[in-house]
Design a protein around this nucleic acid. Sequence first.
DNA 1: GTGAAAGCGCTAACAG
DNA 2: CTGTTAGCGCTTTCAC
Lengths: 369, 369
Amino acid sequence: MTDQRSAPPTVYDVASAAGVSIATVSRVLRTPDAVREGTRDRVQAAIRSLGYVPSGTARALAGRRTGVVGLLLPGFDVVPDERPDLVTDGGVRIVDDRRHVTQPSSSNLYFDEVLRGAEVEAWQRGLALMVAAGRGSSRDVIVNDVAGRVDGLAVMARTVPDDLLEHVARRVPVVVLADDGRSHGFDSVSVDNVAGMRTLAEHVIGRLGIRSGIAYLAGPVDSPDDLERAAGFRQALADHGVPASDVTTVHGDFGRVRARELATDLFSGAVPRAVVCSNDQSALGVLDAAAALGIRVPEDVVVTGFDGIDAGRFSTPRLTTVHQPMGELGRAAVRAVVDRLAEPDGPPRAVRLPVEVLLRESCPPALGA
Amino acid sequence: MTDQRSAPPTVYDVASAAGVSIATVSRVLRTPDAVREGTRDRVQAAIRSLGYVPSGTARALAGRRTGVVGLLLPGFDVVPDERPDLVTDGGVRIVDDRRHVTQPSSSNLYFDEVLRGAEVEAWQRGLALMVAAGRGSSRDVIVNDVAGRVDGLAVMARTVPDDLLEHVARRVPVVVLADDGRSHGFDSVSVDNVAGMRTLAEHVIGRLGIRSGIAYLAGPVDSPDDLERAAGFRQALADHGVPASDVTTVHGDFGRVRARELATDLFSGAVPRAVVCSNDQSALGVLDAAAALGIRVPEDVVVTGFDGIDAGRFSTPRLTTVHQPMGELGRAAVRAVVDRLAEPDGPPRAVRLPVEVLLRESCPPALGA
DNA sequence: GTGAAAGCGCTAACAG
DNA sequence: CTGTTAGCGCTTTCAC
């Protein structure tokens, strides 16, 4: 350990140590069967004793492929580690954590799952995964640090400006995640927002029979996800002959705090019987408002979200939602990259992943229950 | 989109398009100020119009550094997606998820945090991060796919066999995570298991005044973490003059199920007043057993864990534990790699990260409360 | 089966 | 300021 590591051994070192040419060393590594057993053994011995590790870099250059796929995610929220009430002690902090409801930084969890899925899939295909989070800002960083080092790139929608993506796509295939794919000519993998929201809304309207007093809490106006979900919602209304004008629609920002404010307003008049939200964070804000005002969920009003974030599993009441298969999204992304690599030409492909409606206490399977 | 992408443009293409030499193209990219403005502009224009992206591979080869650090983690548990009670519907599954207590595959969460920390730190240092999980089995994969492509490597302890690690370390600096670092000559980053457990145990013995009826639920005998925690525990006993022989010690496997069984046995005799567990999963198993037997926690028996996994925040009662700063572990790992890169020689360094004792309901700050 | 030699695309002296 | 020229360490024909 702590070797000099002055200059790592190369094929040349191995070759001369084994008394063969560098071509033979290369063959031992890549096509062992094409080398006579005795020779092979000598080379392998040399590799061991020298501690030779082939340069992935040189390999990639010579072989014109890196064996790496890149994954670009929005920056992880670097949550400052603020803690309550600490009662220090010799070296180790002791914290009274009893009523401390840490909110797991949910958007992170979401991306963690994507990342994990991508890693698993890449691994199974013999590819390495290079992750870059939160570098969306700097043009150069993306282009130089990632695009130039990978065979293909999976990019979370809206992580990278479109023109940059277009530039990068001239070098490596790009797959866009969680976008509808209609906006540009890239391959895409996304989740079926429309069907998910439609199915959930149909449950509310059709099965629970709530046909009036419905409120829809939308997200930012420029969100494609939001648009799709809204479309699914309207389909459900139409299917059940509920006029869209009967629905109170308000626009939030996908955030919990803003949703709580909006819901508080909403609840100040005639309390609606259902609040359908276009994401989980908003729905949690609605639950907050209801709790504060003493409005019972689901007895007085049912509340639904969309995403399937972890916090919704632990809220009170637990949140009914549409669960997005994030891990699967990551896997599918890698698959899409690999497919495109295998078939560079042809029209862009759009993969749609199915979602699941999870009925929990905030909007149960049936109201009497 | 879907360009022919037959052969990505190279420096040569850019150079001739801009009427300069390849050296100048390179300069525009790396030291723009060393190039006259007019020339620079022409080159940049050429880069844009050709959609040139420099080959990271070639750069790395020529520059003798990749700008990438590798992170080796144990395989993510690929949890098969088993769900309860589904009530299918047109295309979208509807699941009654009301009483379904999904257990977040906790070991994953743990690694997710490490990964995220590493990514953040790498990014801040202008490095890319290459992740490899679960390839511990195949010697070649590790060596070839990762070690050859990075400037340095952070490896979670016990992910890679020691001899392989030694081999790899001859090419790139290696930092071992979450190991005591005494076993080998590598740099290491770990968590202060001893102090953490000692502090927690002192709380139980000293502050809560529980001096008899203490049980210690240890982990697998070969776990270094477990050994350190046990040592911390014994220190606390010694500090308070409690004979080790007064403590009932049982060995589990760090798993929840096994812990539940062991605790059930434990509780069948005289119920202990404290069960100190060497990890959270076990502690949760103990809580399971107590709940099943109608034993009250913390009134009848206090229970403590170690790790700070998420599930412990949501258990009933919530679990008192020693929280390991996993994100910080990831960050420190990257830092350690970078430091070693800057100073290749010198003795191995061992970084110890502080832990925090989180007092929650399963073993509160005071018993009367 | 094995070796010689020509790159892969870029960086980094070294001259001008 | 800009061009020339070696490599970086490996893969891959093409001969032998």
